[in-house]
Write a protein that binds this DNA or RNA. Sequence first.
DNA 1: ATTAAAACCTGTTTTTTAGCAGGTTTATTT
DNA 2: AAATAAACCTGCTAAAAAACAGGTTTTAAT
Lengths: 252, 252
Amino acid sequence: MQTTYYNTVSTTTRKRFSQDVGCISCENHNCLIKRNLSSLENSEINIEKSNLRCKKGQQFIIEGAPVNGLFFVLKGKVKVFRTGIIGREQIVRFATAGEIIGHRGFGTEEYYSIGAIALEETVLCYFSKNDLQDILQANPKFAYDMMLFYANELNRSESKVKSISQMTVRERVIDTLLYINKKFGSNKGFLDVPLSRREYAEYAGTTEEQVIRIFSALKKENFIISKGKKIGINDIQLLKNEISEHNFYLDS
Amino acid sequence: MQTTYYNTVSTTTRKRFSQDVGCISCENHNCLIKRNLSSLENSEINIEKSNLRCKKGQQFIIEGAPVNGLFFVLKGKVKVFRTGIIGREQIVRFATAGEIIGHRGFGTEEYYSIGAIALEETVLCYFSKNDLQDILQANPKFAYDMMLFYANELNRSESKVKSISQMTVRERVIDTLLYINKKFGSNKGFLDVPLSRREYAEYAGTTEEQVIRIFSALKKENFIISKGKKIGINDIQLLKNEISEHNFYLDS
DNA sequence: ATTAAAACCTGTTTTTTAGCAGGTTTATTT
DNA sequence: AAATAAACCTGCTAAAAAACAGGTTTTAAT
């Protein structure tokens, strides 16, 4: 069992050893840090890390706040968004265990350009900008993995640009369902993440009403089932067929 | 003057020294390779590189073709796009000297998910997947710089997702003009890149007709001037004001 | 210089999508 | 268990944008 801190990220720089915060004993093998742990030990850098526990709905990155580091998701589910014209949010991606939150939490940028909110009980590992830079500079394999992570996210994001630009609302909603299924999977027949119709809309780039209408239609057509907020996909392939003309190279 | 090859990228693996293809004497100081040259020399890896000269309109990356490496732009201008539903292209970004083309030209991906076409006489430097992986693994600073490049592009792409989703067509066209101006600058009062109305539309995520209509309106309102294909921006700030409500944190 | 082909333009129609209004159901709090 | 809030739903209306049609101008090729 590892020590966990309930306070928000502090700017004070306490000296601690990596063992104190549990990277060594951590079971999250999707984590880039964890996967590169052997080389990290060799480099003999003391990783200064804080753990942060978030309740459902808690915002841990605020758009426009000063950047001082970035987060790795140890456990839980998160939405990453940008706030647009009054009140309207655009969810740009979701993240789960092992993923990185806080783009450009290093480099020369001064402010976060995104916000992040926990969708359920979530535990985050926080690394300060400076520490992370040291680790990256000293560990080519780690920097390489980080690069791949961003390159893949870029690919997905550019794919999304095309989707929003060229798909109809119905297709975008279907695309969203497939993305959510791929990212979070299903449990007992229902997508394993609690999202409101509004949140589906904020990812698909449309309105709550449209999502409701389209879910109703998809339900009537036996593509999906729904029970309150919970949505279940009956046949993945059937949904994929509906948008296949847009995905020549299966990039989703 | 460095040797240039006019043929398309060959899959044969000739052994050459980096000097042969001119990285040492190259004047392109925006290039990530060039900026990391000192450490590259120390690592004593022979960079196997091909130069490729493209005429205006020539396509050098084809969507769906097998990935075997990636390109650095030595000189010229390029558009990067994805082909959507029949005939319609979505331009996802433009690139100029020093930038990288061919996402995931390494990693585990097998096929290009984007296409790329030269917008004018362009010279590219091509690096094979394997060579690049070797260089990156051995040079943390280089891998770090590559990571920053992708992280920044990701940021821009996610910003674009929000734009396309929340802005009106007029705002998107204005946003496109500002992006083109920032990327390619102006020459004698006109944006320094030859783009058709259709290409502006393909980046803005709309139709040629809409771009024409909006350019006409902007001209009438004295925001821009136009002379054939050439477009000039009269007052950058004036255009920025039109979309300022969407850019709380100046991310464009 | 002539022809052909792009590219550009504008008015009209049709389609799609957002916004609004006024409900019901489901979930949460006291 | 009742009250309150949040989420969900549906029909209608309005707005935005795409598609179409039929031009003109500009650019490139012979």
